[in-house]
Amino acid sequence: MLVHSKAGRWAAWALFAVLFLPLFALPLVVVVAASFAGHWSGAFPSDPTTGHYAAAVRGESLQALTTSLVTAVVASLLALVLGTWAALAAARLGRRTKRSLDALFMLPVAVPSVVIGLAVLVAFSRPPLLLNGTSSIVVLAHTVLVTAFAYQSVSAAIVRLDPAYEQAAASLGASPGYVLWRVRLPLLLPSLTAAGGLCFALSMGELSATMMLYPPDWVPLPVRIFTATDRGSLFSGSALAVVLMAATLLVLLAVSRIRTRASYR
């Protein structure tokens, strides 16, 4: 424990409450409150209703949720495969080459995502790479955006992996492919699931690049939240936001359960 005196501990808690509650908790509380509100003209919402939720889980809203989930799952799986592959390959490179590869993969993080969206739009709007107007262009953009995070976290995990394991495996007659499949990937599994969860969460919340790209039949939930609030339906937008939050948290919870199992072995 860092703070020993009782008064000091109280002060630390008070500081935490002052900083954390307004910054992190209060906006979430307000969104949840708004999602149940029929009116909100005074200090507190009035006319509590669940009508916004009833609307949020059917029709186009439900479709938007499914769209978001499918996009996020596909994009994060693709990102995980590509990022892990690249990270494994980069680990074998010389220091300078590896650094330039690191920089290349971090580019989509450094560049504003609107720019990434625009770039993808321009690049894939012309035959033979005509993806504009299809769902794949959204998935593609999300993959580009989140692969950076997958690459980075798997890279960090590979550095921490003791080379003694793969050397022991090689001395026992295991070919590099067998070592990868039976030793290195299983040992990396906790980091892989963490990276997957991160990618999923980022993709679920992605708005700015998606806005540049989404076709009318592939509207992810953040876009729908944006359009709802944009036309003034603040309360139904809030309900959609809570649904988005809950869906993301549920998936992350499931992923973290797999992760605990993997790291326990």
Binding site: D162, A164, Y165, Q167, A168, A169, A170, S171, L172, G173, A174, S175, P176, V179, V183, P186, L187, L189, R265
Partner: peptide
């Protein structure tokens, strides 16, 4: 020859047993 084709057995200081 790569290590896995040498037909050796090896034991190292830190054991390197596969934890999983």
């Amino acid at each position: 020859l790569p290590p896995h084709k040498r037909g050796i057995g090896m034991v190292v200081q830190q054991y390197a047993l596969f934890p999983h």
